[in-house]
Amino acid sequence: MPRELVVLAVDLGPGVRAGFTTRAGGVSRAPYDALNLGAGVADDPAAVAANRGLVARWAGGPVAYGTQVHGRAVAVVLVPVGAADPLASVGEVDALVGAGPGVAVGVLVADCVPVLLADAQAGLVAAVHAGRRGLVAGVVEAAVEALVDAGADRSRLRAAIGPSIAGPSYEVPAELRDEVAAAVPETAATTSWGTPALDLPAGVAAVLGRVGVDDVQRVGRDTYTDPDLFSFRRDGTTGRFAGVVRAPG
């Protein structure tokens, strides 16, 4: 029997269901234990489908996921997707906008930054996968623009930055740190042991501020040091957790 589902819920406005899953609550076996939601990590597909079903029940409806490629493409989802086939993908995208009543969207991570956004009044939500390459490519900006194009008001947007690898843990070569910081200066960091690093959550927060999203909350848990969360950098073969948000309705 699966353990009790543990989701780090966040408040993105009236009627919006939003949160970040943890390892707890699923049926996958080690090394994917227990709530692995990633369909591309060699886990048993039946276990992944069952795990996604658990998250769909928490969200209040099926959750649409994309095939993430570390880019800036956005898919706009108009009707609930995923009920017939929980493992289906809406395409190669790193951000999804839920633009219909009750539409739920999610992104999968194991160190990258999951970002959730919502304009509850407009009934619009978005989930963003912001890794190093996607952040530099502008995936956060692209998601906000897609929300605005769909009818969101920047002044009403609320965002939540989920668990990810933290600056003190994310060691990179100095050349790579400088390359990323040239695009997003706030990412420049140093590890807890004094070597060059990247602080992706700080970069995401800065980009959100620059595009007019001022209401930003952060779930400051470091995937690398937190055994309750998946971390690819720590474990190599491992599962994926999700940031999930469902529009009102």
Rank of each mutant, 00 (worst) to 15 (best):
G151H: 03
P185S: 09
A146F: 14
S155E: 14
T191G: 05
A183R: 13
T195G: 03
D149H: 14
A160Q: 07
A146Y: 06
S155G: 15
A146M: 04
A174H: 02
D153I: 10
A152V: 03
L135G: 01
L157C: 06
G167V: 09
E145D: 14
R133S: 14
G194P: 01
E171I: 04
T187D: 11
G194R: 10
V211G: 12
A202R: 14
V172Q: 05
V184M: 09
A150D: 10
V172R: 06
T191K: 00
E179D: 13
V172W: 04
T187V: 15
S169R: 07
G151E: 11
A188K: 13
G203A: 10
P201M: 02
R132L: 15
R133Y: 10
A150H: 00
T187W: 10
P201G: 07
E145W: 11
S169F: 01
A143W: 00
L176T: 10
P185F: 07
T195W: 06
R154A: 12
S192P: 02
E186G: 08
T190Y: 01
P196N: 01
A166Q: 09
A137K: 09
Y170P: 00
R158W: 14
E186V: 06
S155W: 01
S164R: 02
V136A: 15
R156G: 15
T195Q: 08
E179Q: 13
